[in-house]
Structure formats: structure tokens, C-alpha cells
């Protein structure tokens, strides 16, 4: 998929590609920001498994020190997360334990080494905001160096970012990325509705404004507007 000679990578999120001229710019680094429960990890996993269906290599980097089986257990609730892809088209890497032991530049080298080994087309770092908590003052430089390197590895990378109360998106990382997608929860009467908004997507004439989303076992995150 291309737009004016610009390569794009199918997002795997039903309805989203219609909002961003066919897919994420390739290569690029995109921040998927939202509060807890907004669907960030589901979004990121669907992105990886959609690529796996097309034979594209994926790399999931967890910063949480969460044993792989927990991630797999929750992901297995979705029909798209086919077990045969684990360890092959979708490789899991736990960066969490390394974050406690290394400085920012060493963390970059660890990520570089894993990417060079796996050679992924699709990368997820989930969540990137944990790294900010660990690195503190070095985080802004780390974020810049990380995004530069990720783009030079020729992949589309999704960074998921936890949003603090009162914050729209994690500002420390948003300046360095090519795209920002917000996943939002909104209290409306007795209901809590979910929305998606493409805030920034470089090189893309993207749709603006909030669009309703749903999360289903079959497809994960779906942009509801795409149904009409």
C-alpha cells in the first residue's frame, strides 16, 4: 500500500486505515496513548498478529517484567491471537528485568540487538512510559535516540503510553514520534464509551476528531464508524 509513492503498513485495526490514508507510514514510530483499560495493549497485539497473518515478522517488547505466559494468557482470549504465531512471527522479549540493571544507552543497545536478531517489520514496546519512570532525567534523550534508531531499523513501531489523570498524552515521548493516536474513555450518563483520535500522523492527511471504538473478542479494537 502506498500514497504518492509513500509506503504504508496496514494497521490491522478495522476502520483505522480509512482514517490514515491506508496505513501507518513505513518506517515510523507511533505512540498509542490512553488511560488504563482504553485498549492500548489489545490495539498493539492486533497490529502484530495482523502482520503475522501476512507473514510479517513481529517483535513484542514488554517493559513490565511480566512473565510471557501472562501476556499470552490474556491475549489468548482474542480470536486473532493464534498460538501458532508465538515464538515465530510474533516474538516476545522481556525488557523489564533489564531496565532495573542498565542505563539508557545500554537499554538502547539491548533493543538494537534484539531487533537485529529478529529483523521485525512490526515492533511494539508496551508500555514505553515505564521506561520514563525508570530513567527519570535521561528519558527525554533516551526517547529521541530510541525513535531515531527504531526508524532506521525499517519497521513500524507502536509505543504504548499510559496517560496520567488530567494528561492528554505523555508529552516526554510525543515530540519524538511520527504519530500519536489517542484511545479515550468517556463517562456519558451511565455508560463509559471508548473513542479513538488520530492526533498526529506525519506525511498523512488523516481524519481528525474522535471516532467511536469497540473491543471485541474477534477483532480486538474496531473503529465503529467503519461499519457505516
Amino acid at each position: 500500500m502506498t500514497t504518492n509513492g509513500f509506503p504504508r503498513l496496514y494497521s490491522g485495526i478495522p476502520g483505522l486505515d480509512d482514517m490514515i490514508e491506508g496505513g501507518f507510514p513505513f518506517p515510523s514510530v507511533v505512540l498509542v496513548a490512553g488511560s488504563a483499560g482504553a485498549g492500548k495493549t489489545t490495539f498493539a497485539q492486533k497490529f502484530l498478529f495482523s502482520g503475522a497473518e501476512k507473514g510479517e515478522q513481529g517483535l513484542y517488547i514488554s517493559t513490565l517484567s511480566e512473565p510471557a505466559q501472562w501476556m499470552l494468557r490474556y491475549a489468548s482470549q482474542f480470536e486473532f491471537a493464534k498460538p501458532e504465531f508465538y515464538g515465530k512471527e510474533v516474538v516476545y522479549y522481556d525488557l523489564g528485568t533489564e531496565l532495573r540493571k542498565h542505563a539508557g544507552s545500554e537499554i538502547l543497545d539491548l533493543i538494537d540487538a534484539k531487533i537485529a536478531e529478529v529483523m521485525p517489520t512490526r515492533i511494539v514496546i508496551d508500555p514505553i512510559t515505564v521506561v520514563g519512570t525508570m530513567l527519570k532525567d535521561d528519558y527525554r534523550i533516551f526517547a529521541f535516540d530510541l525513535t531515531t534508531r527504531l526508524k532506521n531499523w525499517q519497521a513500524v513501531t507502536l509505543l504504548t503510553g499510559e496517560v496520567r489523570p488530567g494528561e492528554m498524552y505523555p508529552a516526554e515521548i510525543s515530540y519524538a514520534v511520527d504519530g500519536v493516536i489517542l484511545l479515550m474513555l468517556s463517562d456519558e450518563g451511565d455508560a463509559r464509551r471508548k473513542y479513538i483520535e488520530v492526533l498526529k500522523m506525519r506525511g498523512t492527511n488523516h481524519l481528525t476528531g474522535k471516532q467511536s471504538v469497540d473491543i471485541t473478542r474477534k477483532d480486538g479494537v474496531i473503529v465503529l464508524k467503519a461499519r457505516f
Binding site: 509506503p7 503498513l9 513505513f26 510479517e56 529483523m119 517489520t121 531499523w153 525499517q154
Partner: peptide, 10 residues
């Protein structure tokens, strides 16, 4: 395919 260019060069 453009997503494979790095791999093909390798």
C-alpha cells in the same frame, strides 16, 4: 517488497 528490503540486503 519494501518491508523486506533490509532482509534482502542482509
Amino acid at each position: 517488497k519494501y518491508t523486506n528490503l533490509v532482509r534482502v540486503n542482509l
